[in-house]
Design a protein around this nucleic acid. Structure first.
Length: 510
RNA sequence: GCCGCGGUAGUAUAGCCCGGUCAAGUAUGCGGGCCUUUCGAGCCCGUGACCCGGGUUCAAAUCCCGGCCGCGGCACCA
């Protein structure tokens, strides 16, 4: 019975879920293969997640394959972060994404060199020895540089010289021949390889083994073909790159994959930009709670503060492949996460501004059993033995107790106000029955047993500000590190860590 | 400056390709009610939008033109 209910619930979700529009020209390719190609220079954020999730979901939708490819071909400006490779894999696994193949571009350099040589042979590329300024000036006028029309043998020879280190940084590049009169100057004879002095800027994986590095447009274009990618899903900022890469495909007689461009994702009140985050961390390391500080829009940050992977997935699916930029409002994210988390998460008691309450009329010791969820019994319960009749409730609830005279300590007892002195409240237990509490319409509040309490620090992000609230939590939360929980009447959050004498919680939302 | 893309309620999205069924659907937010051992969830009711101006047409959110606004690219970055 319960099993049946659960299944029908899942089916309902499935039916309600946003369907993605069909992919173009699937018939022409006969299969679907997509890829997610992050630069491992930092953690990935919500915007990257859009590319990852859409690519993965489309592959799944058509029973196709999904490739993870690390694009780490810039050891100088966007230097890969050695830990980022695994952190990105971890983020993807967290999202429930599985990949069929994985590649790292820095380990495919020989492949790129081979394609470059082929391109030189067919006259689709040339080695340009002009200083950058000079080339730019010629290009803006639509004039060919003197090296463009030299024969393939000369080009190949110069490329070998590039590889053997005869040219220094900036002295030679390999360019793809496009159209010198293309209306967009950026498209004209773009750079496919440049020289990077890896003795000065070693690559974290291959060190100084290579000095001739492919640019993004070259490596991505070649890999998409070699890996049999049929559909590329990427941000609008890549629109020009599609135009550029088309020339390379034409030189080699390859067929370009279908491309779907979508807009950027912004998250209201969050920093998403990798470079901005890196900058902030470098400049003010002491102001942040680490690389996954909850004010960032990275997946690890969202995870740390208690956003669930299903929430991210649904959010992205709802955005779809629209061309326009989307600014997600935090209210919306929180609402979705609340919905997802509600049936999944344990309820725990935390009190802010705790006040001691001495309970009269208890037979001690007393055993108190508290369910972790009002309806989902499989989430279990915790049990506390009280040998002292002392609990904590919130200051604001003391005021409620005073004005209402009676209230209910959730899952425990109905208590009546007696008196308050020296910052301590005395209350009498009137009974334990919830039915009585309901009949009397009592306010129900969370509480923490004094003998089983632990200090708690709750961090809450508000825009760029980080607030810290302190309070007392029931000791059971020490066992829930890493879990997303609902702090009854306070909000959702994730138990971040347990220190010697306190627990740290990241607040997600109310 | 030059290229390109886009503008549906506070936010996000459906519809636009193939004009009428759209006095514009959905989610969230907001207001109200019900339910509930939470100020959470659920259920019900209500609220609220086609950027502007022309044109085509019997008929335009949907097609055309102009304007305005927003975004992206113009790297030996990805």
């Amino acid at each position: 019975m319960a099993e049946n209910l659960r299944i029908s619930e899942e089916e309902r979700r499935e039916a309600e879920e946003k369907r993605l529009p069909p992919l173009p020209n699937v018939d022409r390719w006969g299969y679907v293969k997509t890829r997610f190609a992050p630069n491992p220079d930092f953690l990935i954020h919500l915007g990257n997640a859009r590319a990852a999730i859409l690519s993965y979901e489309y592959a799944r939708m058509y029973g196709g394959k999904f490739v993870l490819r690390f694009e780490d071909t810039d050891p100088r400006i966007k230097r890969p972060l050695p830990e980022a490779y695994e952190m990105i894999r971890e983020d993807l696994r967290w999202l429930g994404i599985k990949w069929d193949e994985e590649y790292i571009q820095s380990q495919r350099m020989e492949i790129y060199y081979d394609v470059a040589k082929k391109l030189l042979e067919v006259g689709g590329a040339y080695v340009d020895l002009c200083p950058p300024d000079k080339f730019r000036e010629l290009r803006n006028r639509g004039v060919a540089c003197p090296h463009r029309d030299e024969p393939p043998e000369v080009q190949l020879d110069r490329f070998e010289k590039m590889l053997s280190g005869e040219y220094g940084e900036g002295q030679a590049v390999l360019r793809i021949k496009t159209d010198l009169n293309h209306p967009d100057p950026a498209v004209r004879d773009w750079v496919a390889f440049r020289i990077i002095d890896t003795s000065r800027n070693p690559h974290p994986i291959v060190g100084d083994k290579y000095i001739v590095w492919p640019t993004y447009n070259f490596a991505a274009a070649v890999d998409d073909h070699l890996m049999g990618i049929t559909h590329i899903l990427r941000g609008r900022e890549h629109a020009v790159n599609t135009v550029k890469q088309l020339f390379l495909y034409k030189h080699l007689g390859w067929e370009y994959p279908e491309v779907v461009h979508f807009g950027r994702v912004n998250l209201e009140g969050f920093i998403l930009s990798k470079s901005k985050i890196k900058q902030l961390l470098k400049k003010y390391p002491e102001r942040f709670l680490g690389i996954d500080d909850i004010r960032f829009g990275t997946l690890s940050a969202l995870r740390r503060r208690g956003i669930l992977p299903e929430t991210v997935r649904q959010l992205i699916m709802e955005l779809g492949v629209k061309h326009t930029d989307a600014t997600l409002s935090w209210d919306n994210v929180a609402a979705l996460n609340r919905k997802v988390a509600d049936s999944l998460c344990r309820r725990v008691f935390v009190v802010l501004n705790p006040v001691r309450v001495v309970l009269e009329g208890l037979d001690l010791p007393i055993n108190v059993k508290l369910r972790y969820h009002p309806t989902r019994s499989e989430l279990g319960y915790r049990e506390y033995v009280l040998t002292k009749p002392i609990v904590y409730i919130q200051r604001s609830d003391v005021e409620l107790l005073k004005s209402n005279k009676v209230l209910r300590l959730m899952e425990f007892a109905n208590v009546e106000y007696v008196e308050e002195h020296d910052g301590e409240v005395v209350a009498r237990v009137r009974g334990f029955d919830v039915r009585e509490a309901k009949k009397l319409g009592l306010q129900i509040v969370q509480w923490v047993p004094m003998e089983h309490s632990i200090k708690v620090d709750i961090y809450r992000a508000q825009g760029l500000k980080l607030h810290r609230y302190t309070g007392l939590a029931e000791s059971a939360i020490r066992e829930l590190v890493g879990e997303v929980v609902q702090m009854v009447r306070i909000g959702f959050g994730r138990i971040d860590k347990v220190l010697k004498s306190k627990v740290v919680v990241m607040f997600a939302h109310e």
